[in-house]
């Protein structure tokens, strides 16, 4: 187990180093770094001072070290638009994004697993066929367009739910979230469902496939032979085994949901970091762009690491194969 984690940690370090190099090359070497890091409104004297301060007159490898040094101290420059440290800005917006992704994930799992399990348990029933046909549609629907249509129906025509913003936030266990106030919940519902739709079909298909595979296994026959009720066999024995692929996918998809929240946040004007990056790209607020890239890439690398470790705990075969290889 330790060997496995150490190996994975080393791989993570390599990925982070390569990524920082790529971002550095992308922003500093391909683009014009002064255009990226110095506000376009500044005059020539300010420009020269900034170039000296940023070390842009030094050789490239030294600049890279300087960039790394800044990144390690969490100093990624100041936002031109908000005039505050870019990293701080992103950290401020992060909770809203995580909250949205979390809500979407819960919706996808709570709705998707039972639907998929049913479709796997009775594959020939019309209901199951409808579920599977619906899942093809779910794969094909463009998220942003569905979001627009949801706003049109539920916010504009029916007027049931608000379409923009986060609503009232409350505090629970020291975390500020809109999941604890009624107004906040009303605001989160549409964007969360919109984001969840993307993963609902996937969860559904996985649960269905797991159900069909597991029903043929010997342990199911054994449990039935023992005289357990069909209900207990499916809801306890089979369910546990379906969870293995679902946990991996859930972990990976959480990252995917955070990435895709860029779209949902833009549609529903949700004040998360996804909306922030789009606004920053449109405003050419480059320090924020660089900070966003580094933060999300690190986040992803660590999510992948966590999933790998979790997976090896759930499924001993993985860690054994890895330790041998």
């Amino acid at each position: 187990m330790t060997v496995f984690i150490i190996r994975r940690l080393m791989q993570t370090a390599v990925v982070l180093a390569v990524m920082s190099l790529l971002v550095f090359v992308g922003v500093f070497a391909i683009g014009d770094p002064t255009a990226i890091l110095v506000s376009p409104d500044s005059d020539q004297i300010e420009r020269d001072r900034a170039i000296a301060a940023l070390g842009l007159d030094k050789p490239l490898w030294e600049q890279y070290l300087y960039f790394l040094y800044g990144a390690f101290r969490g100093d990624l420059g100041k936002s031109f638009v908000f005039n505050m440290p870019a990293l701080q800005l992103i950290m401020q917006r992060l909770p809203a994004t995580l909250e949205l992704a979390f809500a979407a994930l819960v919706i996808a799992l709570v709705a998707g697993i039972p639907l998929g399990m049913y479709a796997g348990y009775r594959p020939e029933s019309p209901v199951s066929k409808t579920i599977m046909a619906g899942s093809i549609l779910g794969f094909s629907l463009p998220t942003f367009w569905v979001g627009l249509m949801m706003i049109m129906v539920f916010a504009v025509q029916l007027g049931w739910l608000p379409s923009t913003g986060r609503g009232q936030v409350g505090t629970i266990f020291g975390i500020t979230t809109s999941l604890v106030t009624l107004d906040g919940l009303a605001h989160v519902l549409l964007p969360a469902v919109n984001l969840a739709l993307l993963k609902l079909s996937l969860v559904c298909r996985l649960a269905r496939a797991g159900m069909r595979e597991n029903l043929l296994m010997d342990y199911v026959k054994f449990a039935r032979a023992k005289g357990l009720s069909a209900r207990r066999v499916v809801l306890v024995h089979v369910f546990k085994n379906i969870l293995i692929p679902l946990v991996t996918v859930t972990g990976l998809e959480l990252g995917n949901l955070i990435a895709f929240s860029v779209v949902t946040e833009t549609v529903f004007a949700w004040p998360g970091m996804g909306k922030l990056i789009i606004d920053s790209i449109n405003n050419l607020d480059r320090p924020v762009i660089v900070a966003y890239l580094l933060v999300t890439v690190s986040m992803f690398v660590f999510i992948n690491l966590a999933v790998d470790i979790l997976y090896s705990i759930l499924d001993p075969r993985v860690r054994l194969a890895e330790a041998k290889g």
């Binding site: 971002v23 762009i289 999300t296």
Partner: peptide, 19 residues
């Protein structure tokens, strides 16, 4: 493997933000 561990939209976003 590493590239596939990042969501497509994120990779596209990064590239277009830089390019």
């Amino acid at each position: 493997d590493i590239q596939l561990s990042f969501p497509a939209i994120l990779v596209a976003l990064i590239l277009l933000a830089v390019l």
